[in-house]
Design a protein around this nucleic acid. Sequence first.
DNA 1: CTGAATCCTGAATGATACTG
DNA 2: CAGTATCATTCAGGATTCAG
Lengths: 118, 118
Amino acid sequence: MAVKNDEANIGVVSSSKTYHNPTEATLDRIGGKWKTAILCMLAEQGALRNGEMMRMLSPITQKMLTQQLKEMEADGLILRTVYPEVPPKVVYELTESGRSLRKVLDPLCDWGKQFMKI
Amino acid sequence: MAVKNDEANIGVVSSSKTYHNPTEATLDRIGGKWKTAILCMLAEQGALRNGEMMRMLSPITQKMLTQQLKEMEADGLILRTVYPEVPPKVVYELTESGRSLRKVLDPLCDWGKQFMKI
DNA sequence: CTGAATCCTGAATGATACTG
DNA sequence: CAGTATCATTCAGGATTCAG
């Protein structure tokens, strides 16, 4: 997913893989275990804090939430804003590119509804 | 992906997970490393044989191709037809459900084009 | 409150050899 | 031609602990 920090590739936003078709490039960016859930939440709620997302995505771990958010930030899908307060306040929201994913997430969501048992 | 053959779940087409949202149900079915590539090929070509797909997806291994096809067949996305000939002839094509994935694959493909370098 | 740093396990994928 | 069967490897994901 996203970036592999080997020596020759530090800080590079997008790895230089070769895909069989463009769908694989998309899945590389939204295929993480929690990414579509996070993206859908942010699309609905607008902007959220770490703690809020932790609760909504339970039982996600802090490590996974942070990791998935970081990767998506590096991929330009999410904007992370730190407010210099005490205690710390950090807010996450979709970027323009992240919002453009709606065209992808909506069909993904529609098709999957036939299997939902919630 | 697809089925987990533990004792209580043999032969069940769809595992009984609980998802945070329907997108995860979709990704469970098309998220394998080669699945979208296979599905797109079949959507374009109509029907293909094992050897044809092996060549088009190179460097996929025989094991992975068979495995991904089996899972998608179990999920009702692909139809496998064996012609009783010598040498053997087996043809794969999309089912109705598989064809309905076009609504998902097309947006997935469109969005990913911005990252293609081929 | 937000998040970094380690360590660890299992699933997913791959290499290779064999078969009706 | 179209697979199976094993073994090896890699890597995403998870548990736990520490920090500003």
